[in-house]
Design a protein around this nucleic acid. Structure first.
Lengths: 291, 291
DNA sequence: ATCTCAAATCGTTTTTACCGATGATTACGA
DNA sequence: TCGTAATCATCGGTAAAAACGATTTGAGAT
């Protein structure tokens, strides 16, 4: 029993005429006759009464037609679904983002949701490590984070943009006029940093260590908006990439030194068949960042 | 896209291993590989990710599997239904009966309903003409009526039994002791007969006519129980086959003469594939009448 | 580097879907 | 009543497709 035979049967049932049905199916009458017969042989029940040159459905044919139709329909529905999936009229993508890239994400997310309203988007915030872990387990389709050295071939990465590392301070502090600032100067300021485990924090502490400096870190916190609220008090400063901060009450002062900037990356699995929706999101993301 | 391919796909999805799936399906690994690939080509979407020697479902594969499963299941359900139909665990038969054979039917009907409780039985009472008409139109599967000459080859007929034509009278009439009665005598009795169009009435009036007799018919009625109620008053008599009457308050007196009996027949369409349930009913019917 | 396992690929065989022609039966019109 | 057209079944041949076994490829493990 094959879908082909069920389709033949249903058309024959509809027209109650093998010749016409065969024509409608673009096959010869003899083929239809044979296929129907083969189906009947396989299910061991006649589907049609042959009365002379006329045919009519048997009881078995009538009852079986219901099921045949549903079977064919479900298969066709499956194709429609795939069609939709291809046209981004359905589906779901899971995106992981570090807190530092919140602003970058938000813009694109809004755009994407407007453009593909039927596609469900699920956002997961977390540390780079957590996100890469989830990506490996295929729990995420796309991760936005800062570049870290990794020769893991299972990932594909694309650069989104580079953003300088900056000292973040409240506007009313005396630093407002500064064009840049050195790491040494920063060690003399009270700092509140993102929690250990965050890519940027790791990067920064590494930079201090290389210069043998000891920054005055009095607060660690794993939520950027809260961190920024603390900085706004004027009592603390923090270090973040420039794009992480879009707040009129705060100023960002680039840190002096080579390589004092970070590259935002989009990372996804190399091997898995990429979701259309993920690619569409990525495309928007790159367009937003002039790539 | 064929059910075969969907089955292959589902098994591969289940085991996530082509080699094992092929084995479970009793086909070679190469065949499974090719068929899956062919399916993917046809639906234009990969169903599996091939990561090295491992495979995993793509999003499309996951979503499509739902539909594939349902399609396959509906087809299989159809087979189960046909199985049930064959075992008389479902289905419906339409039986036409003349009023005169009500008693014959009832016994078998009860038996049948007990034996095959899942089979729906639909009983239609009517005149022979009506019933044969409906049988021709395939609205009925089986008709129980009295024999009439008809060389129509579209019908198959089987004799159930013969029953003598009898004069039916109330017990307290003076006829109780009579072993038989002639047509001439009957003309002197007030008669209530089944309505014109009934086989027996046609037969009886024909018999009177052949002998040049004029019976005293004062009532015609198309319902046998009502007719019998009228006869019970003692003011009228009627003529029916013996089997039509099973009532202690009534007596039946055979009518003298050759061919003064009627043959109850089961009639069905010759060409149509006979329903299993109909054949089972017929078998019971014949068993009940010692055939 | 080598081995192993699983999937893909290749070339061949077997099966079967399909066709056109033909045959059989029936319905219909002259 | 006798064609004639319509319709389904059947047959033989062909082209397509499914299936196989053997081999290759590639990734992960040793």
């Amino acid at each position: 029993m094959e879908l082909r035979q069920l389709r033949y049967f249903l058309k024959a049932k509809e027209l109650l005429n093998f010749t016409e049905a065969a024509h409608a199916l673009n096959i010869s009458q003899s083929t239809l006759s044979q296929q129907i017969k083969q189906l009947e042989d396989q299910i061991r029940v006649p589907l049609f009464n042959r009365i002379g040159k006329r045919i009519s459905l048997t009881e078995a044919g009538t009852l079986f037609a219901e099921y045949a139709l549903q079977s064919v329909n479900r298969a066709d529905d499956g194709l429609l679904l795939l069609e939709d999936l291809n046209n981004l009229k359905t589906g779901k993508i899971n995106i992981g983002v570090t807190f530092a890239l919140r602003n970058v994400l938000t813009k694109t997310l809004i755009l994407f949701a407007q453009q593909y309203p039927k596609v469900k988007v699920c956002i997961v915030f977390g540390t780079s490590d957590e996100l890469i872990e989830k990506l490996s387990a295929a729990e995420l389709d796309l991760v936005l984070t800062f570049k870290e050295d990794s020769k893991d071939t299972q990932f594909r990465q694309e650069l989104l943009f580079s953003s300088p590392l900056t000292l973040v301070a409240a506007e009313r502090t005396g630093l407002a006029s500064r064009r840049s600032i050195s790491l040494e100067e920063i060690t003399r300021l009270p700092l509140a940093l993102p929690a250990t485990g965050y890519s940027t924090t790791r990067f920064i502490t590494e930079a201090f260590k290389r210069k043998g400096l000891h920054p005055d870190v009095s607060i660690e916190i794993n939520d950027i908006p809260t961190l920024l609220a603390i900085v706004k008090t004027g009592s603390w400063h923090t270090i973040l990439t420039k794009v992480s901060v879009v707040d009129q009450d705060l100023i960002t002062i680039p840190i002096e030194g080579k390589k004092m900037s970070r590259s935002a990356m989009a990372i996804w699995l190399n091997d898995a068949y990429p979701k259309k929706a993920m690619l569409a999101f990525l495309k928007l993301l790159k367009a937003e960042n002039n790539l």
